[in-house]
Design a protein around this nucleic acid. Structure first.
Lengths: 251, 251
DNA sequence: CATTTCAGATACAGACCTGTATTTGGATAC
DNA sequence: GTATCCAAATACAGGTCTGTATCTGAAATG
């Protein structure tokens, strides 16, 4: 699976480079089908893409497809697995690399810069898979676990960051991670929708603002605030703004 | 178009309640088709829903459909129009009602509370339409304009809020509105994905935290911060974190 | 090399979906 | 009340997609 990859019938490529074993050949095919599917899904959506289009785009015929997957559903499953796995790894890498806030920010900034070119199709695919998972009651929990882990990795990075600055986080880091993670998603959406209203660093800048705000809040937690305010509807526990009441169950 | 609405053949309903004029009848049909489409799109996606399913769900046949729309594409257009229009109105209403921060927060809180029950399907539809618009080069700008207006309304509300507290916003309100708006989107996604990791007030709480953080930042803008930091990749204008450099072109 | 095996191509049958052309029956107009 | 009109139903012709069943030729095996 190294040289290779004229997208035509791969047998030709074989004779050129290296004889591929059957298994290698099969894996290559599978991978190319997944890749083709990813591209088409991003552009036309999962439901807007037929098996026929996928195999054509990959340079095969339907025989190859049904030899490697049970059907489109299973292919989407595989794709979803691959995709979320990669995202998780990226996030974990981030949490490993990030020592200080500034370091973390630098990583985030370059990450978003790299992604900017392909943000549209990347986000479209992500969204398609998200919707697909949302609609499959068996899939949603799996997706949720992956998402949770990504956020947990981010929470860890944040924890380090705060520790490095020796400021107390203004809320549980899990909550802050949730906020930051969500902000990244939401801003990416807006960037794709209205590219003129943001620039390549907007996401990173917004996150940086967030960080600095939180630091400021930690240093200067309670504004005067009209001391009254019966706070009518605020019963529950989880995302409470109040200061520090560390961990929830987050797995 | 008032009493009415047994979802069966509407002629029966007519005889029961009020004779509908032809035009009224037609509009009712159209509206019911749109409604049915919205529900099915949320559950199965635009491309996962056939015209046949739509008309069946609405209690008609394909004849009624093609009498009211040129095809599915045009129906989606109409739906998108309706949907974004309503969102815009909600946001504008918010900006009208909100005098103080606390007021604004209360509105937001109740808004998210009301929405929570139907958040999943609502977001699914929104996302479907977003993806649809994203893929149609003629549609994207239209969508962008709507989005921009919504954010502008929010920016206005924020401006009022800051003024009421007499704090200077830590960044252009347009930028803050972008952040807050995006945060709402992103958190909603996470809430649908992992309902256990957030509660009904999480979005509102997160936004409140954001507000309070910004206030804190305004009161206490520059932390010591390692005074060095060559700030390597930060050339552009738009979303800069730095303090106040008011308006962009935002229409 | 001869034989077996299997990845992928080809052929086919059934389901579904779209869009148009035609029909029907209640609303409108006189 | 009769004639007209039109919203919606019905009928039909084409197209596309899916999944399976069968075929083919190159790799594996000896």
């Amino acid at each position: 699976m190294d040289t290779v990859s004229y997208p035509t019938a791969h047998q030709e490529a074989i004779t050129i480079t290296k004889r591929l074993t059957r298994q290698q050949s099969r894996e290559l095919t599978r991978e190319q089908l997944l890749q083709a599917a990813a591209e088409l899904f991003a552009e036309h959506g999962v439901n807007g893409t037929s098996v026929e289009q996928i195999v054509e785009h990959a340079g095969y015929t339907r025989g190859a497809f049904y030899g490697n997957f049970e059907g489109k559903h299973q292919l989407v499953l595989a794709l979803l697995d691959q995709h979320t796995q990669r995202e998780l790894e990226e996030m974990q890498q981030l949490s490993l690399d990030a020592g200080s806030f500034d370091n973390l920010m630098e990583h985030l900034r370059s990450w978003y810069r790299q992604r900017d070119e392909t943000l549209g199709s990347w986000l479209a695919l992500r969204t398609e898979l998200w919707l697909y998972g949302l609609r499959d009651p068996e899939l949603l929990p799996v997706l949720a676990v992956r998402e949770r882990r990504s956020r947990a990795a981010l929470a860890q990075a944040l924890e380090q960051g705060f520790a490095a600055r020796s400021v107390a986080p203004p809320a549980p880091v899990e909550f802050l991670a949730l906020v930051m993670y969500s902000l990244g998603d939401g801003l990416s959406i807006q960037r794709v929708l209205c590219p003129e209203d943001s620039d390549i660093d907007t996401v990173a800048n917004a996150i940086e603002l967030l960080m600095r705000s939180w630091s400021a809040l930690s240093r200067n937690p309670a504004p005067a605030e009209e001391a009254s305010r019966p706070s009518p509807g605020r019963p529950t526990t989880k995302g409470r703004t109040p200061s520090i009441e560390k961990p929830e169950k987050n797995p």
